[in-house]
Amino acid sequence: MASETTTAGLAYGKRSLVRGMPGHHIAIFIGFLVVAAVAPFLLYPVFVMKVLCFALFACALNLLLGFGGLLSFGHAAYFGSASYITAHAAKVWGLTPELAILSGTAVAAFLGVVFGSLAIRRQGIYFAMVTLAFGQMIYFFALQAEFTGGEDGIQAVPRGHLLGLLDLRADFTLYWVVLAIVFFGLLIIYRVIHSPFGQVLKAIRENEPRAVSLGYRTSQYKLAVFVLSATMAGLAGSTKALVFQLASLTDVHWTMSGEVVLMTLLGGMGTIFGPIVGATVIVAMQNYLASFGAWVTIIQGVIFVIAVLLFREGIIGVLARRLRKPL
């Protein structure tokens, strides 16, 4: 394992993002890019972009849940706030898309600092409840505030020109930009998991008192991962606002927080690629089963029950155990 890691790293140069990445992970990332490059020609590009945004959102939650051991039940707060800010920045302030996305992401990061520093004082179910409460506060704010447009949301958000040059109105042009953003986000999350910081994080997840006794101030690490996760969730929300040209109450609703937990669990919590698979399955179901109306929720529920009963480690979790390789 160790030798495989070093050779893969050396082949790509010392400072590269893939340094230390095992061969099969590089292969999966390349496979992901290939599939993502072909997908918009076979499927509706906006649908694929939706999958990509939710994949990033689920991976962001998984960073906190699967590697930090912290279940946030209010991640819609960061996804949705970023979505609103990006929509407002692009539509009202007339910012270019990259600046609009950065503003949304920055606000999500800021909220992550504020809410995270309060939430990490509690553990387990209480932590989940505190995050849910903050999520509800953001929902209420979005419902009441002037700029969010209440029930209507912010509609007809202009996609604008990237860096003032590239016209993003065409779905296909936007697609490559979204793919680049999401892929970059996924690589960042991958690196966080496989960094010295990630190593301490896993230790805290496994046995917090022991990590404390080794001299780690664990609450600082928990806050750091909370903020990183909120920031990445924000990046996903901001990007989504440009894709759909819409920010709405759905983005900040607690069901959104629940859905992303579902995606993570279905794909495999604590795996690297599981949330991508989970997000794909859930978004595809919502899309292709839409004709069943309210039955979608029931079908989703049944699938979730089956998943929890038969493969608790999630789709990729089971696969990783079979292959005896971290996926």
Binding site: G9, R19, G20, V192, H194, S195, Y221, A224
Partner: peptide, 16 residues
């Protein structure tokens, strides 16, 4: 790892 001080460097590869 403790001798490195705090390990907040999330951008660095664990190969270090």
């Amino acid at each position: 790892q403790r001798e490195r001080g705090d390990s907040f460097d999330f951008w660095r590869s664990q190969t270090v």
